[in-house]
Nucleic acid binder design. Structure first.
Length: 269
DNA sequence: ACACTGACCTGCGAGC
DNA sequence: TGCTCGCAGGTCAGTG
């Protein structure tokens, strides 16, 4: 499931592959993926625009075109491919973009959770979808984390998954960040100390940076699009592990905030 | 106002 | 072997 590092990898890969390409036509095979307007209107507006600038906000992919911004959320299993138009389509290939260079950008999504829409080019992304700061924003600092943690009555795991707290973290990296901080996912947010808040900022930035450098991850079934398989070298320390890679204790798994959460009861307090 | 639950989807693996 | 059931999880609407 794509989280911030996987989305970043997809954006950078697509930038290399299709930047500057004109959209000649759009074919929508499953209309539910289009939000905010009819599929016909969506296709009509995209036609003859070019892919100009590639960026990301949280887990959203953002493509600046000539007149509109194409916004895509991959949710659980959304993937992009750049293929020869003659290549056979499977039943999960939902949107096809014919490109000026004769190739086809293809959106694939087994579970149909992903969405795409068009927004004005000048849309302010600061509070886009109520997203909080990016992990490297100045605003994401120890003081902010401490204040936010103490303003809620939620476990730490739920806080990390809250996109209005910090943008881009999903279930897997949340577990990994908390392991690196030696904090249990079920620990009450309001028990966080200043020192722990500072460490949370540092470990979040470190883990996400390393994952981006490794090209995302293949944790579980997700491989980032385009045959670019993530090779997240630092691997999961706890998520879906049986034994702690530090102390060897059995890893516990319990549901916190409705999500399966993995932690080492010996290393995490 | 905050926090939790279910819906959206499909594939897969466990259990009978 | 074949069926049913539960689970995977990001986001948002709905509920308490």
């Amino acid at each position: 499931m794509p989280e911030l590092p996987e989305v970043e990898t997809v954006v950078r890969t697509l930038e290399k592959r299709i930047q500057g390409q004109e959209i000649l036509a759009v074919h929508i095979r499953w209309p539910g993926v289009i939000e905010g307007q009819s599929p016909e209107e969506f296709a009509r507006r995209l036609t003859h625009q070019h892919f100009r600038v590639f960026h990301r906000r949280g887990k959203y992919l953002l493509f600046d075109l000539d007149r509109d911004m194409l916004v895509v959320h991959l949710r659980m299993e959304g993937k992009f491919y750049v293929d020869d138009p003659g290549k056979p389509l499977d039943r999960h290939m939902h949107v096809l973009f014919d490109l000026g260079n004769g190739r086809q950008l293809r959106y694939h999504d087994v579970r149909k959770f992903g969405r795409m829409s068009l927004l004005p080019l000048d849309t302010d992304l600061t509070h886009f979808h109520d997203l909080g700061p990016e992990p490297w924003d100045e605003g994401f600092n120890a003081g902010y984390v401490y204040r936010m943690a103490h303003s809620r009555r939620q476990p730490l795991k739920s806080l990390l998954l809250d996109q209005s707290f910090v943008a881009g973290i999903g279930n897997i990296y949340a577990d990994e960040i908390l392991f690196a901080c030696q904090l249990r996912p079920g620990r009450a947010s309001r028990r966080l100390t200043h020192a722990q808040a500072a460490r949370l900022v540092a470990e979040t930035q470190r883990i996400l940076s390393e994952a981006i450098r490794a090209g995302g991850t293949t944790i579980r079934t997700y491989t980032s699009s385009l045959g670019v398989s993530g090779r997240f070298q630092l691997q999961c320390m706890v998520h879906e592990q049986k034994f702690c890679r530090v102390c060897g204790s059995p890893i516990h798994c319990r549901r916190i905030g409705g999500r399966s959460s993995y932690y080492c009861p010996h290393c995490q307090k």
